[in-house]
């Protein structure tokens, strides 16, 4: 059981590190959102899984509650994280930030959906 926890922790830390590095290395907002969202969500999944396994291994009311809380936090993260990223990407695009070296920008062509841009 300990090996599983260590493995999960290592994977989680690795992917979170990847997210942070992606945030620094990528050239523009959209690619940064790509990296940050995907990697931190994935890394957090594994961190939380490690905690959940730990809680289940402990057993009893406390351990069970810990596992349930961890899974619930995971569920909330899965719901909120992509939404926040999407909203940020949309906001960034509407505030006029162009994608870096974009080969194609269909959204710019249609002019932000229905709205006239001042």
């Amino acid at each position: 059981m300990n090996g599983l926890i260590y493995a999960f922790l290592a994977i989680g830390a690795a992917f979170n590190a990847l997210g942070a590095v992606a945030l620094i290395r990528f050239p523009d907002v959209y690619t940064r959102i790509h990296g940050a969202t995907k990697c931190t969500t994935f890394g957090s999944i594994f961190s939380i899984l490690a905690v959940a396994v730990y809680g289940i291994a402990q057993g009893g009311g406390a351990g069970g509650t810990m596992a349930v809380r961890a899974f619930l936090a995971l569920l909330f993260l899965l719901l909120t994280n992509p939404t926040g990223s999407h909203a940020l990407a949309r906001g960034a695009h509407r505030s006029g930030i162009k994608p870096f070296r974009a080969v194609v920008d269909r959204l710019e062509e249609v002019g932000h959906g229905h709205r006239e841009v001042p």
Binding site: L79, T80, T83, H86, A87, R90
Partner: peptide, 9 residues
């Protein structure tokens, strides 16, 4: 906000 945010809200 977009439909995604609305639905999640």
């Amino acid at each position: 906000m977009s439909v995604v945010v609305k639905t999640i809200a």
